[in-house]
C-alpha cells in the first residue's frame, strides 16, 4: 500500500470525541492540571521568599560580622532564581506561540536560554567577589589589605560560578533537554 492510499483511509476514519467528552476532559484534566501548575509556582515563590527572609534574619540573629555581605549574596541569589524562573516561563510560552516553526523556534529558544545561562555564569561570580571585596575594604579601608584576602575572593567567585551552574541546571535542565529532543527530531542532516 502507498502513502496516498493510506491518506484516503485516514481522511475517511471517524475519530472524535463528543462535545460533552471534550468538556469533561477540559474540566477534569486541562483546568485542574493548569491550576496545579499555577499553585505549584506560587508555592515555590512563597517558599523562596520565606527561605530568603529566614536566612537573612539568621545572619542578623547570630550577629554575623559580615551579615550585610552574606545577606546581599542570599538576596542576590534569590533574585537570580526568580529572574531565571520568569524568563523561562515567558520564553517557553512565547516559543510555543511564535510564528517560527518547530526547528527554528527550538533552536532560537536554546540560543536565548544559553545566552542567559552564560550571562549568569559571569554575573553571579562577579557579584559574589565584588561583595567580598567590598566587605574587606569596609573593614580596613585599605586596598592592599583587601588583596591579602585574594584566596577568599577567589573562593567566593568559584562558589558563585557553581551556584549559577546548579541553578541553571535545576531551572532550565528539563526544558533544554526537551528542546534538544525537538531539534534532534527535526534535524535531517544525516
Amino acid at each position: 500500500m502507498e502513502l496516498e492510499e493510506l491518506k484516503e483511509q485516514i481522511a475517511d476514519s471517524q475519530v472524535s470525541y463528543s462535545r460533552s467528552e471534550l468538556k469533561e476532559i477540559f474540566t477534569l484534566r486541562t483546568k485542574r492540571t493548569v491550576s496545579k501548575i499555577n499553585r505549584k509556582m506560587l508555592i515555590d515563590a512563597l517558599l523562596m521568599i520565606l527561605t530568603t527572609a529566614l536566612l537573612v534574619a539568621a545572619t542578623f540573629i547570630i550577629g554575623l560580622r559580615s551579615r550585610y555581605v552574606v545577606s546581599g549574596q542570599i538576596i542576590g541569589f534569590s533574585l537570580l532564581i526568580f529572574v531565571h524562573y520568569r524568563i523561562k516561563s515567558v520564553l517557553i510560552k512565547k516559543a510555543q506561540n511564535s510564528d517560527n516553526g518547530l526547528q527554528i523556534g527550538a533552536e532560537k529558544l536554546v540560543r536565548i536560554l544559553n545566552k542567559y545561562i552564560y550571562a549568569y555564569k559571569i554575573i553571579l561570580p562577579s557579584f559574589f567577589s565584588i561583595l567580598t571585596i567590598k566587605h574587606y575594604y569596609d573593614l580596613t579601608h585599605n586596598w592592599s589589605a583587601v588583596s591579602d584576602h585574594w584566596l577568599i575572593i577567589i573562593i567566593a567567585a568559584v562558589t558563585g560560578y557553581i551556584a549559577a551552574n546548579i541553578t541553571a541546571k535545576m531551572i532550565y535542565g528539563k526544558e533544554l533537554n526537551k528542546l534538544k529532543k525537538i531539534i534532534e527530531a527535526m534535524d535531517w542532516t544525516d
Binding site: 502513502l3 491518506k7 485516514i10 516553526g101 518547530l102 526547528q103 534535524d187
Partner: peptide, 27 residues
C-alpha cells in the same frame, strides 16, 4: 521511522502544502 520523519508523514497524510509544512516544522 524517527520522530521527525513521522512528523513529515503526518503532515503529508493530512494533505498540507509544502508551505504549511515548512511553517509548522520550521524548515
Amino acid at each position: 521511522l524517527d520522530d521527525g520523519d513521522r512528523a513529515i508523514v503526518l503532515l503529508h497524510l493530512d494533505e498540507k502544502s509544502y508551505k504549511e509544512m515548512a511553517e509548522i516544522l520550521g524548515i
